[in-house]
Structures are given as structure tokens and as C-alpha cells.
Write a protein that binds this DNA or RNA. Structure first.
Lengths: 190, 190, 190, 190
DNA sequence: AATGAATGAGCATTCATTCAT
DNA sequence: CATGAATGAATGCTCATTCAT
């Protein structure tokens, strides 16, 4: 057996990256209906090349979203280091929303519990991300910075909502998120 | 031009209604990807009949959403009659969100600022609806029931966000909306 | 429920027949690799029309072969009426081979036990045909006109062989079949 | 022109042999639809290497079949040495059929008079083979072991038929061939 | 000489829309 | 008016073949 994932040749890596870029842009802007032929054309490549790198349109989409999600999961570390649990949670929450705002593909993946494309890898990655956010939530709640009646299972919905608001909103980025955050801070009804 | 909207023959009216019903159900459940042929089949009609009433798939979608939105705009009257401006606003807001939650087509139209389908008529109708909501907002703000830094132009985004939350959320209907409402009640930061 | 298979409109029936004709010819001559687009083109129709009548390339092929096989099964009746069991069997056998000779699609279906396309309907039809032939074989054997060591299960192979011979052979039709028939008449080795 | 067939480098010869082996196996088992990429993969080589040795898929197929046919032509010598002309002919005939039975590629080439692939070299080789068989036929006929109305030109068809029978037949190898042979022995009709 | 990345024509199939019956 | 047959552009994907590394 030869090394299963031998590093790609220089030009191949370039092309692969090109496809990812173009596709991310296309999916982000126009949704997943953009034809693969079109993506290939914009990347200046033949269709076959796209399919060499991603065996399926679905696989291409997954690769893009996976990449974004994994980068986001990484930034959870930074947030965790904040001494104030409330700040840590709200910072990370805001960060996730803003990331989703600029990327329609990511948006779809985050917002819809298993949107069009729903693979094991994708579920795993967003699960990881939500777990990290859930941990921050717990700490913030114990510190009294977030109302107690919010559950970790609500987080995806909160994300989806904040994302949708930002996306639909007109003002400066963060304005709508702030309102959601205030809602999370509010004392629960008694 | 012959009388533009001469009253339809009885059977034609019945068919038109049948198409609207079936299509609303189909779009609400499965999104706009359902083929027209399928809608015709479910309605027990030929495709041609569908096209006689709606010249385009887009037009059919628009007609459906327009109808729902107009009905919703009507319910604003009821809300306005509530003596407490705060209750009036939150009741209507919640009502709109819940309507969108059960209807994928409406959701698309409300949530996405000019989603897939964006026509003059549609914009007019949702404008009307948002104006009504905006009026309630103003009254509620003057009564101190809603924070002052929210603008009428934010309402569509708030709706979209609350819709997305409810849709993605697991708990009993209204749970997520409540958090958004609490956010709207919160005192603005100083 | 409206009559499930209401008779087709005149032009539709014409088109359907046209497709069957063209496709039979094409499959017979060039094998099943002929593109559907090409079949449509030769029939002077759009691809969509072909697909309206036959939901799949496979289905089109099946329809053709099924038709031929069913016609052949019908001719078994004629053969059965021959007073001499030997003549009856050899006549029918020859008839089957000759039918297959002129039709590559039929050839494939008869010759290969479940060739490229192998559906229930197809298996049923050729099973029927082989049963009829098997009955004639039994009678012929009891009358001493066919050697005893041939079994009904051999018939498909015999057909396939005779078909291949005729197809590859140069002389007048029937020459090669005669040799196979003589082999079937021959006394088994002792 | 540089020496047309300069001896290949040792590793090149090894690779060429590997491709031939793998392709023969693949074509024999799965027919000619196996992709070249797949053959390269199974041989542990790059596609380019396959194409270096065989400029075309067709050429690869031809090379394989040519090889088998030439080997078979060689075995004619052995058959010729049999003192009884009848035995010699039937032995060789049977031998050819059995060879074709186990090899789908060879089968295609032998059974179909100029099947998918039909080149000069191929025609030459199978011509040689048929000539050898034809000689044995003549001797057998002169010795009265084979009916007189069979012509050398029928041999390919006889081969094709016997092959098809064996391939479609269920029983032990040789059973169907025997019937064809009996047919060849039978006295011609008068 | 070997490799495998790139190419792009080709194919089965779907679906919005038009039009003859 | 209603029907559903016909149309054909569009789409995801495959695979023989070429060519840069």
C-alpha cells in the first residue's frame, strides 16, 4: 500500500483550492443550485477536474462547510481563555453568528439541523462546535450571566435565529445579535 | 382590453382553488422544488389547467404567499384592539412567527428579504404587513414596553430570526419566541 | 380512479409506436449502447417524448423484447396443432431461432439467461415461451423423434447456440439450424 | 525509422505483461466495459503507463485476444498428430470451444464475426486458426467422420454456436458440444 | 519511462412550459 | 376551458485520452 494520502502535486493542490474557493463563493452567493459545470467554468477548469477532487456535488459542499466549521471549532479555544464566563460565551456566540453571516453555505449547515446535505462528518463537526458552545453556556449560567431556562439543545436554534436576523437586518453587523444576547441575559419569567 | 378579471366560471373557480390548496400544502411541506406536474397530479388536474390559472410556477408561488400574507395583515386589526400597546405588539409579532413556522412557503417569503420570488405585489403585501407591525411597535415603544433603539426597519429581521429559531428549536412552540421578545423588552445598553 | 390505462390519444399512440420501431431497429443493429437522444432524433421526436412513454432506457428495451417474446409465445399454439410431435417441436424451435436471428435485442434476451436487462416481466415471458417449447420437447421425445438425454433445461442453451450459428453463418437461413436439429435427433452415445 | 520493436526495458516488459494479465482477467470476467482507469488501478500502475503500451482501449483488447488466438492456433499442431482424422477434428473443435467458454473476451472475438473490435491483425489470426480447423475438417470428411455438406466457411458459425450453448448451458462442460458434434456427424438429408 | 492530473464530449434523466386535441 | 402529449434546455456524472511533472 502506498501512502494513502500522499501530498498532492503542486498544480493539483492549486486546482483543488481554486475549486473550493470558487464553489464556496458560488454556494455562498447563489445557494447549492449552482451547476458544477458553472463552478468548473469559473475556476477555469474542466468538469472532470472538479469531479476528480470531489466525487460528488454533495461531497464538494460538505468539504466546504466542513472546512469552515472546523476553523470555527478552533476559535472556541480563544473564547474559553476569557476569565469572565459571560463574556466568553457571548463572544463565541457572536463569533459563530458573524461567520455564518458571510457564508450562505455555512449558514445553511449551521441553521438547518441537517439541511440539504447531512453527512456523518458534517454532523460530527457541528456537534463538536455545539458542544464547545454548550460548555461555555453552562459556565455562563453558573456565573449568572445567562438565564437558567436555556438549554444546550436550544443553542442551534439560537444560532439559526441570530444568523437569520443578521442576514436579514440592515444596520451595522452585531446590532441584531445584541438583541438576542439581551434576551438570553434576561431573567426568566416567574 | 376585455374586463380584466371577469368572474370565473364555477368549475374554473373550483379548479383554481384546488390548485392553490394543493400547491400551498406541497410548497409548505416540501419547498418549492415540487414539480408542477406533481401538483397537477395531486389536484387531479392536467398541467395545462394549472398553467391556465398561473402562467408560471413563480406566479403560483406568489399567489399562495400573497394570500397568506394578506390574511395575516388582516389579523393586525384584532391585535390593534388590545388596550395594552405592549401586549398588542407582542401578540401580533408572535402570531406572525407562528404562522410562518407552519408554512415553509410563507417562511421563505417572510424570512428572506426578497427570497427566491420577489415581485412587486409580494413586496407591497409584506410592506403592508410590516407597516402594521411597525405601528404597533411605535405605540409599544411610547408606552415603554419595547426598548427604544429598535427601528421599524429591524422588524423583518426580527421576524426572520424568530422564525428560524422556532423552526430549528425543539421545545414547545413559543419558547424561542419568548427569548427574542425578552430581548426586545430589555433596556438598551447605555 | 380514472381508468388506469385509458387508450392513448391517436398521435401519442403513433409516437409511441414510432419510438418502439426506431428503438427496436437501433438496438437490433447497434446494441443497447445507442443513446436515447439518438433514438429520439431518428424518430423525429424530443427526448422528453421518449421518456414520457418509457420512463427508463431499460424500460424501453424491455418493452421491445417483451413484445417480441409475447408474439412468439403465441405462435406456439400453431406448432402444437401439428399431428407429428417431432415436426411440431422442430418447427417451433426453428421458428424461435429465426425470429431471434433478425432481432439483436430479442437475441440478447433469448440467448443470455438474463442479459443486460433482466426484469420480472421479461423472465416471466421467456419462461412461458420455454415452457411451451419444453412441452413440445417432451412429446417429441416420447415419440422417439428427439434423443432422450436432452432436458428441458437445455433448451435455452440450444436456442442460444442455434441463434449464434445462424447469426454468424453465411449460407441460406436454416442451414445451421438443421445441423443442430440433426444433433438433437441423433441417438445418444451408449 | 528507429528499430520498430526494440526490446523493451526489463521493467517495461514486466508492466506490459501485468497490464495484459489484469486486462485479460477483467475483460474475460466483466466484458469490455471495464474502465481503463480500473485496469490501471488493479495493475498497480498509472493510466499513462497503460496507454504507453497500448495506444487505445481497442488496441489493448486486440492484443489480448490476438494472444489467445495465436496460442490456440498453435495447439492445432497437437491435434493434427492424432492418427484418426475424425478424432483430430472433434478434439480440436472441442478444445477451441472450451477455450472460448472460459474467456469472455475471446468469446466475443470468436463468436461474433468481427465483433466490437475488428482489425486486420485479428482477422489474420483468426483466419489462421480457422484454416487449421478447416484442414482438419477436410480430412475428417474424407475419412467419412463428418457429413459432407458442411463447408469450411461454416466453421466460425459452428464455433460461435457451440460457444453460446456451452455458455448458456447448465450441465457439465462438454454436454452441449457433444450435441453439436453429433449434428456434424449425422448423415446429410437426401 | 512512469505517473496521475486535466480535459471535455457524451449520456441518462428531469422539469418548466407550450400547444394540438 | 381542460387535458396531457411534446419539447428541449439543463444537470449530475463517467470515462477514453492527452500531457505536464
Amino acid at each position: 500500500m502506498i501512502g494513502a494520502d500522499r501530498p498532492l502535486r503542486a498544480d493539483a493542490r492549486r486546482n483543488r483550492a481554486r475549486v473550493l474557493d470558487v464553489a464556496a463563493e458560488a454556494f455562498a452567493t447563489e445557494g447549492t443550485t449552482v451547476p458544477i459545470d458553472e463552478i468548473a467554468r469559473r475556476a477555469g477548469l474542466g468538469v472532470g477536474t472538479v469531479y476528480r477532487h470531489f466525487p460528488t456535488k454533495e461531497a464538494l459542499f460538505e468539504a466546504i462547510v466542513l472546512d469552515r466549521i472546523q476553523r470555527l471549532a478552533g476559535t472556541a479555544q480563544a473564547a474559553r481563555s476569557d476569565p469572565d464566563p459571560g463574556t466568553a460565551f457571548f463572544t463565541y456566540f457572536t463569533c459563530l453568528v458573524e461567520a455564518g453571516t458571510v457564508n450562505k453555505a455555512l449558514f445553511e449547515a449551521l441553521a438547518t439541523a441537517g439541511g440539504q446535505v447531512d453527512t456523518t462528518a458534517l454532523r460530527a463537526a457541528s456537534g463538536e462546535l455545539l458542544t464547545a458552545l454548550g460548555d461555555l453556556l453552562g459556565a455562563a449560567q453558573r456565573a449568572g450571566a445567562v438565564r437558567a431556562d436555556v438549554e444546550p439543545g436550544d443553542l442551534q436554534a439560537m444560532l439559526a435565529g441570530a444568523l437569520a436576523m443578521e442576514r436579514a437586518g440592515a444596520g451595522p453587523p452585531g446590532r441584531m445579535i445584541a438583541i438576542v444576547c439581551d434576551g438570553l441575559r434576561a431573567a426568566p419569567p416567574h
